[in-house]
């Protein structure tokens, strides 16, 4: 189990150099059945990460490039009249896959965004009055450009909340950059990746996440943390119960990735910026979307041991 996970991390690490922490976060997000939002500048390897994850985890993978003129049907699928049978037949859209990469989600109109987000929440799609379940497991990895870039529609808070984590990749390290310069081709590496597991194994691992033990002391800590976000004057809105549950779940996945059967405060701290960063904001206009720094600040204000 532990070995398997480290293999997966190492495999993806070969494609995405020097981003082990982010890879683990992405993996933790998938293990806790959450959707992932990757936010960064173009060309930082967002798509590569998503692709590599799909490859290594052995999931069926589809990619949609969101544009401003996209319609919900472009994602969900359409019913088309077939002359041979004289009936309508449903053509599944890209959403019917195990891992969907929604590239540049904030470039499409809110209508299309919400169609996808509904599918994410319900894990099913209603088209033409018929409800169709999505495959299991089902993940969405969405990428978005920083909001100040032109041609973007900001995701509303309620929809951001559907994503378990938001991570950023950041510039590569010097060594990684040098390796790139030296001709390591991520795309070639990507093609060479072999699946380590398949969807069924992934589901088993997801079940294991739920079994990671959280002691009273740790729950106390999480509770204090959540309370602090709700009471701190720096925070305009506190963490919702859904956010708190997401935090606990993601921390469990993190503990599992590190081969532990119980949670440590470090696990919570490791996933907290990714889980809470997009759910909190300080309220001042200029700070919008800068939740990650806020979360890190808050995190250091809460004592791990006691009230």
């Amino acid at each position: 189990m532990q070995k398997l996970i480290s293999h997966i991390v190492a495999d993806i690490g070969r494609v995405l150099l020097g981003k082990e922490h982010q890879v683990k976060l992405a993996l933790a997000c998938l293990l806790s059945r959450g959707h992932l939002l990757i936010e960064d500048l173009p060309g930082m390897g967002k798509t590569t990460l998503a692709h590599a994850l799909a490859q290594v985890l052995g999931l069926s993978y589809k990619r949609v490039q969101f544009t401003s003129d996209m319609l919900p049907a472009d994602i969900l699928g359409v019913s088309i009249f077939e002359r041979d049978s004289g009936q309508f037949r449903f053509h599944e859209g890209p959403v019917f896959s195990q891992l969907l990469l929604a590239d540049e989600i904030n470039r499409s109109s809110p209508k299309t965004q919400s169609a996808l987000l509904e599918a994410m929440e319900e894990r099913q799609v209603s088209v033409d009055g018929e409800t169709r379940p999505l495959p299991e497991p089902f993940f969405v990895i969405a990428t978005q450009n920083p909001l100040h870039q032109s041609g973007t529609f900001a995701l509303p808070e309620s929809q951001l909340d559907r994503f378990l984590m938001r991570i950023g990749l950041g510039y590569p390290t010097r060594e990684a950059e040098r390796a790139l310069f030296n001709g390591v081709d991520p795309r070639a590496q990507l093609r060479q990746l072999q699946p380590r597991i398949d969807g069924a194994t992934l589901q088993k691992m997801q079940r294991l996440v739920g079994q990671v033990k959280a002691s009273e002391s740790l729950l106390d800590y999480v509770e204090r943390l959540v309370q602090h976000t709700r009471q701190s004057p720096e925070c305009a809105v506190g963490l919702s119960p859904r956010g708190a549950l997401a935090l606990l779940h993601a921390a469990r996945a993190w503990a599992l990735i590190h081969g532990r059967g119980h949670l440590l405060p470090e696990d919570v701290q490791a996933v907290l910026p990714a889980v809470a960063g997009h759910r909190l904001h300080s309220g001042s206009q200029g700070d919008w979307g800068d939740g990650t720094h806020l979360v890190e600040r808050l995190m250091h204000q809460v004592d791990i041991i006691a009230a």
């Binding site: 405060p265 470090e266 701290q269 250091h300 204000q301 809460v302 791990i304």
Partner: peptide, 9 residues
């Protein structure tokens, strides 16, 4: 120890 510092850190 700083308040937010985990035991391991």
């Amino acid at each position: 120890r700083r308040p937010g510092e985990a035991p391991r850190d």
